[in-house]
Design a protein around this nucleic acid. Structure first.
Lengths: 302, 302
DNA sequence: CATTCTTACGTACTGCGTAAGAATG
DNA sequence: CATTCTTACGCAGTACGTAAGAATG
């Protein structure tokens, strides 16, 4: 069990180049630093430094540990920052959306938001539902627009729309019309968003319910990547319906109907804490009026 | 300075609902758990629990601290995992690309990769250059394809292509042809990828060199979001040249020529460690043959 | 021989467990 | 009065500093 002190020692040794300088920086003695590293190494059962000659160098694993350690230390700093900040001031409005929203109605939403709150500095981040929810939880976002499947009690959820997905592939892979049996899907490569994605989760549950084992899927965290890979005949994927009608018309994508159809996902505006405020209401109103998960998207370089 | 033990106690208290059960889980006494929480609170100078009645509830800050703490604990676990794993087995190939690559030539790349290495399970992640490099550093990716501006020594970089950016906006905002003075740009809202992005960094350096102060930009981490916002007349942005020619032809985007033009960014395949292997060479060869940063992208829902 | 890390050893203090006390419903 | 957290107190082991020793170039 490595401790933060050990990782902090490691960080400063690497940064300053010697145990002594690290000791100075941390207001302690060289021997203490030496011990921290020794304990780190003995507890992990590896060497973080290559103790060859004078200048010690990090081992491969040492570098990885350093990197993870630095991230942990940054989080510790954030904990301290959160603790000292009395009621964070009126910073900018940070919010998150998924790629689907970014592709379709984010501009509309941002436009209206800016029209109503000219003086607010917006910072929209695009990530998968799971990551968005993490960031909402840990306080680095003010609200998110995402599938509500990640939400637990303690959050204010305002539903926007239900989004339906369908299996799609390149017509070159499969052109069949009618309803396809699930077992027949497994002959194709499955392209999927990982379990950080709302639709990814839906898919995995659906798969379990159907009792289907899928052959080595290709995972990616990006919707546009998935669409591109699907069009390029790498495999089949489940994509939001309607949005890609442009591709279907151009015969670049083909919808596969399955019998237990893929379930829908409900998108919602989600806030930390269950209370309501004027601004929150305004955001929801604007989101509700701008949102549209069916507008066709065209994007093609393939 | 919170410690991991304190945060771990917090985590299990919340998870199991009582000090006692947390103590059991951590093989210690209730009083030890109580002390850890007390120390956590006194060191941070806040309360993490609302000590009302029987069932104590987390405070708002407490929830945020819990969340950050859990992330830290996950990282500690990863450190231990990295340390115990002797030379990770032949897991899947995890790699990262930026959105630009995902939009244009990722399918081509994945297709060729799969043709050459049928048995490998691919996992392409799409993120900004900075995040990709972090993940390469901390060992959660095998290689990345990104602007090489983040790389330090200790990495194998194989350049692919130079990508040039240009200022663009909706023709509705500005239609002027010739060369525009920089000062005149500041009348528009600037849309920018944050400093996690390669082109975002380039932009900020460029801005400093020009001595230009930019008026409250809208930051987003997503290229498609940026393009959408630009087309929707929210502001001007710097986008890769050529890729969006389709929009320019359709009069949805307009290029603004500036005098010190925006500098280019060199994309590269980047690996941890400077050595070369057969697989690495193969990856580079395939990347070099598939890559194409100029193919026009069409994507429109706006 | 100068620099840098490791070892040795005595000490101070942190954090622990037992057990009793306070709060709560 | 049962449950759950806090306090009190003595103990043990951790982590530290000083100072001397080993390695390296």
């Amino acid at each position: 069990m490595p401790t933060l002190k050990q990782l902090e020692a490691l960080k400063w040794i690497v940064l300053l180049g010697s145990y002594e300088r690290a000791a100075d920086r941390l207001n302690t003695s060289q021997s203490a630093i030496s011990k921290r590293i020794q304990e780190l190494e003995s507890e992990l059962g590896i060497s973080v430094f290559e103790r060859t000659r004078r200048g010690s160098k990090l081992t491969i694993k040492g570098e990885i540990i350093l990197e993870l350690g630095e991230e942990m230390l940054r989080m510790r700093d954030r904990i301290e920052a959160v603790s000292s900040n009395e009621a964070t001031p009126i910073r900018q409005l940070k919010f998150g959306v998924t790629e689907l929203t970014a592709l379709i109605w984010l501009p509309q939403f941002v436009g209206e938001l800016r029209a109503n709150y000219l003086d607010i500095q917006l910072e929209p981040e695009v990530e998968q539902g799971g990551s968005l929810f993490e960031k909402l939880k840990n306080g680095s976002m003010d609200f998110i627009i995402a599938p509500d499947m990640f939400a637990k009690p303690g959050y204010r959820k305002v539903p926007l729309a239900s989004v339906k997905s369908a299996w799609m592939c390149s017509p070159a892979l499969f052109r069949g019309r009618g309803i396809v049996r699930l077992a027949d899907l497994s002959q194709f490569n499955i392209l999927t968003q990982g379990d950080q994605s709302g639709s990814g989760l839906v898919f995995e549950r659906w798969l379990q319910e159907c009792g289907l084992a899928l052959p080595r899927p290709i995972k990616s965290n990006s919707l546009v990547a998935l669409v591109g890979l699907t069009i390029s005949e790498v495999g089949i994927s489940y994509l939001p319906e309607r949005c890609f009608d442009g591709f279907i018309e151009r015969d670049m994508l083909h919808v596969i109907d399955t019998d237990p159809a893929l379930p829908s996902v409900v998108y919602a505006v989600i806030f930390r804490g269950e209370h309501s405020t004027d601004i929150r209401e305004a955001i929801c109103r604007i989101a509700r009026s701008s949102c549209d998960f069916t507008k066709p998207v065209m994007m093609s370089a393939f």
